[in-house]
């Protein structure tokens, strides 16, 4: 069995940042493995460890910088990684879920996985749509916001829990091949061991350009474009306690007494 895990390197804004045009100035961004994808990787690696003959391949659409993040996946047990990039991506205004799904579908075509795991959402642009868009594009079945997975590869069924709102989970049987979007908390992601980190250096990490995937620059065109980015107007009128920790703590303590939730 082959499992394809989609892995994104996401950007996180520092506490203080400036916006430069349509994005946060890169100086104020830190890059990391997307939290949801960390759980997707772990789920795939656990399936591999529980079964015979399971290969876990990761795919990332991202610039060379992303290789550090990709290696983190390899260090945690991914067998092989694919990075998709091309100069053409640098000019794309908005890499929306449909465009990403079209690119990823070309990788699925090459790799023929039985199961694709994605994250529920990317922590930076939070579309929450790439996995299910991909499923429809490649004609796989799917399930979104999965927080428990029991795979019966023989029967070709994934029994999942989908985490709904308000502490309710939906139990669903999904026919394979399928795309599942993985929710945090489904497992306990491991830390990469030193041995894992060392091994990751020699695992295959292949670059695919558009040509290699049979795609063209025009495939990256999207009807969506970002036209502005700004800090939201603060609706809040919070009273900010100023001063040393002792001073602010004293003010907070008297607030709590005034409101009446603590005695004294």
């Amino acid at each position: 069995m082959k499992i394809l895990v989609t892995v994104k390197e996401v950007a996180e804004a520092e506490d203080d940042f400036d916006i430069d045009g349509l994005d946060i100035d890169e100086r104020y961004l830190e890059f990391d493995l997307n939290e949801w994808d960390e759980y997707a990787i772990e789920e795939a690696v656990q399936i591999k460890e529980d079964g015979d003959d399971v290969e876990v391949v990761s795919v990332t659409i991202g610039p060379e910088r992303a290789e550090e993040t990709i290696r983190m996946g390899l260090a945690k047990g991914v067998d092989r990684a694919i990075r998709v990039w091309d100069d053409a991506f640098a000019d794309v205004g908005m890499l929306d879920p449909k465009t990403k799904a079209d690119v990823l579908s070309a990788v699925v075509e090459d790799e023929q996985p039985d199961l694709v795991l994605t994250g529920v959402q990317a922590g930076d642009d939070s579309f929450g749509a790439t996995g299910v868009t991909l499923a429809e594009t490649i004609d796989f079945e799917w399930g979104a916001v999965v927080n428990a997975l029991d795979l019966d590869a023989g029967a070709g069924v994934a029994s999942v829990h989908r985490e709904l709102e308000g502490g309710i989970e939906e139990l669903t049987d999904i026919e394979l091949p399928a795309v599942l979007t993985i929710q945090t908390g489904i497992n306990e992601p491991r830390y990469a061991s030193l041995r894992g980190i060392r091994q990751a250096q020699s695992k295959p990490l292949d670059l695919h350009e558009l040509d290699d995937l049979g795609l063209e620059e025009s495939d990256l065109e999207s009807p969506l474009s970002r036209t502005a980015m700004y800090e939201p107007e603060s609706e809040g009128d919070a009273t900010v306690f100023e001063g040393s920790a002792e001073e602010t703590a004293t003010e907070l303590a008297s607030l709590l007494r005034d409101v009446g939730v603590v005695e004294g």
Partner: peptide, 23 residues
């Protein structure tokens, strides 16, 4: 854009071949 919305909105948009903006 509920949890169930996450489970079918992208599929509908993709099937209809229309763009989707989420959330």
């Amino acid at each position: 854009n509920s949890v169930n919305g996450l489970d079918y909105a992208p599929a509908v948009a993709s099937e209809l071949d229309i763009p989707l903006v989420t959330d």
